[in-house]
Computed example of a mutant assay.
Amino acid sequence: MNVRDFQQQLIHYAHSIGIDKIGFASAAPFPDLKQRLLLQQQLGYASGFEEPDITKRTEPVQLLDGVQTIISIALAYPSKMKDAPQSKRGARRGIFARASWGMDYHTVLREKLAKLEAFILVHAPDAKLKSMVDTGELSDRAVAERAGIGWSAKNCSIITPEFGSYVYLGEMLTNLPFEPSVPMEDECGDCRLCLDICPTGALIEGGQLNAQRCIAFLTQTKTMVPKEFRAKIGNRVYGCDTCQTVCPKNKGKHSAHQQDFTPDPELVKPLLMPLLEHTNRTFKETYGHMSGAWRGKNPIQRNAIIALVHFKERESIPKLISILSEDPRPVMRGTAAWALGELTSTEGTEALRHQLDQEKEGLVIEEIQEALLKGEQ
């Protein structure tokens, strides 16, 4: 098999099955990335969702014997939706970040990679292959940067000339010796809009991210959201797009050709009060196909309460009282207590006092006490 000719066939096939960009990277170690990841750990900036073994993240040979090449792919996703419903009093809405619009991108990219694997094995039956999307050991962005998909930007995204940073990434390790692609030049220049506008200051100079301060990370946690970040979450129920929407390289970038990622406006801008009514079963039935559902309903419902406070939605007070007194989840009761403290009302104060006498969970007691103190000020 002529590897150079086959590489061109593979590129053509990738485009034929709807892959927007494909690039090829050397499987050499990633020493610069290793140093950055070690620093992230030392500073306490890691999210905890990543592969903990930094060696596996930076040395492809640890993942596939004889690996020579990493194939990187990118699929574009939309930045706009048609017929977006409006949020109004009595019918307030949250928002899922664009990376959760349409079908779960993990599923879509894995299907594309599986087709690529099958195509390769027809022509090279002895090829060794290992694919991954997001949750694998490798850094999708580091691979994509080396493979010439785009450059690694200050907002910690890969920016492509064609689609901006609105792309999903996946990769495949192989022992086939494909010719490496040429990496792109960094085009961020002196621009620092994403750094300056990040609501929580999570973006650090040089494209470094403190995940512990990142709203996209905070909306996925299952514990109480730290007090300093609650007001900054706004009406986001999953993820955050601020560092993408302010980026000049994303101006005018909107790709609607990947039908799998077409958003359902009612799902990605959900009504907040009905969101609080979902059981595990109904949540999975409604949102289970979206990437934003991967942590289950608990973080989403907690975030919905925070969003109701953002809107100062006093019509939600009876529901918040019900959650405070009846919900079995301490985080939900604690968040409801905080919300009632923010939406000061006579009935809310009475409910807080009553629950204080009943409550056994320390974190909820603390939130109730602070909410009552706020009401007295």
Score class of each variant (00 low, 15 high):
114 A>N: 13
347 E>V: 07
334 G>Y: 05
244 Q>F: 02
198 C>K: 12
33 L>W: 02
47 S>W: 12
296 G>Y: 12
84 A>Q: 14
205 E>H: 06
346 T>H: 13
329 R>G: 01
260 D>V: 05
263 P>A: 01
25 A>F: 09
133 V>M: 11
213 R>Y: 10
7 Q>E: 14
201 G>Q: 10
109 L>A: 05
82 K>T: 04
114 A>Q: 14
255 S>V: 03
252 G>W: 08
289 H>C: 07
108 V>L: 11
337 A>R: 04
303 N>R: 07
293 A>D: 13
189 G>N: 08
8 Q>H: 13
83 D>A: 14
57 R>C: 11
48 G>L: 13
372 L>Q: 02
241 D>M: 06
214 C>T: 04
169 L>Y: 09
317 I>A: 05
143 V>N: 08
237 V>Y: 09
331 V>H: 08
65 D>V: 06
127 A>L: 10
76 A>R: 03
105 Y>M: 05
28 A>R: 10
112 K>W: 08
343 L>S: 03
316 S>P: 04
330 P>D: 14
134 D>I: 06
346 T>P: 00
278 H>A: 05
295 R>E: 15
29 P>A: 00
205 E>L: 13
105 Y>G: 03
296 G>N: 09
254 H>T: 11
320 L>S: 03
296 G>P: 10
215 I>F: 05
28 A>D: 15
76 A>I: 07
230 R>E: 10
165 S>Q: 06
248 P>M: 05
353 R>A: 02
136 G>L: 08
118 A>L: 11
270 P>V: 07
